[in-house]
Nucleic acid binder design. Sequence first.
DNA 1: CAGTATCCCAGTCGATACTG
DNA 2: CAGTATCGACTGGGATACTG
Lengths: 113, 113
Amino acid sequence: MPYQDEGFGCPAEVGLHMISGKWKPRILYELFQETRRFGELRRRIPEVSRHVLTLQLRELEDDGIVKRTVFHELPPKVEYSITEFGRQFEAVLEQMVILGQQYIGSQQDSKGK
Amino acid sequence: MPYQDEGFGCPAEVGLHMISGKWKPRILYELFQETRRFGELRRRIPEVSRHVLTLQLRELEDDGIVKRTVFHELPPKVEYSITEFGRQFEAVLEQMVILGQQYIGSQQDSKGK
DNA sequence: CAGTATCCCAGTCGATACTG
DNA sequence: CAGTATCGACTGGGATACTG
C-alpha cells in the first residue's frame, strides 16, 4: 500500500531521485566535510562545468538538501552548506561507496584470470 | 584519493548506478521478498512494459544483483532471485524509502498552508 | 510464457558565449 | 565572483509489433 506517490513507482525513488545527478554525490561529498563557496567547489571538482554545477546545486537546494547563502558584497560571495535533512544522506552514500567498491573489486577479480 | 574510478566521478556513483533505473527499486522490492517469475513481476508492477522490465532485469543481472534461472520447459519458465550481493542493497533502499517519505511529508506540510 | 526488434520523444548533460 | 542563456548530442524509457 505504500508505493504509490505521485509519478513515482515507489518511495525509494523519491529519495534516490534527489541524489541522482551526475555530480551530486561528488558535490555532497564536499559539503559533508564543510561549507564551501561556489569557486571552491569548482576547484575541487574541475571536471564539471560552471553551468552544470549551478544546475545540480539548484536542484539540491530545491530539494532541501543544500542551503545557499548569498553575501551581498563585492566581489559576490555565495556559500553552500548541507542542511539537517541533507546530512541524513551521508550514511546511505557511504554505504553506496562500499557497495560500489565491492562491485569494482569483483569485476577486477574476474578480469584477472 | 579514492573518488577516481573509471568514468565515475566518485565510487558512490558506481553503487548508485546499479540501482538507478526507473523500475529497479520497485523490482528489487519484489525480489527482496521472494523469487519471482517474469510474469509475476509483470502482474505486480503493471505500469512497466515487458520491454523495459526485461531491460532492467538484464542490467540487474549483469551487475550481479539478480540471478536469472531458465527452466527449459514448455511453456517456458524463468525465475528471478536476489543474489547475496544484491541483498546488501536492501538496507540502503529501506533508508531511501524513509528519506523519500520525509521529503514527501515536508512538501505536503508546506502545501497545506 | 518470456522474450526481441524498431522507432521515437523528453530529459540530462556538455560547450560556448554573455552578465550583474 | 558567481552566475544566466542558448544550442546541440546522447540516452533512458515508452509504444508498438513480432517470435522461439
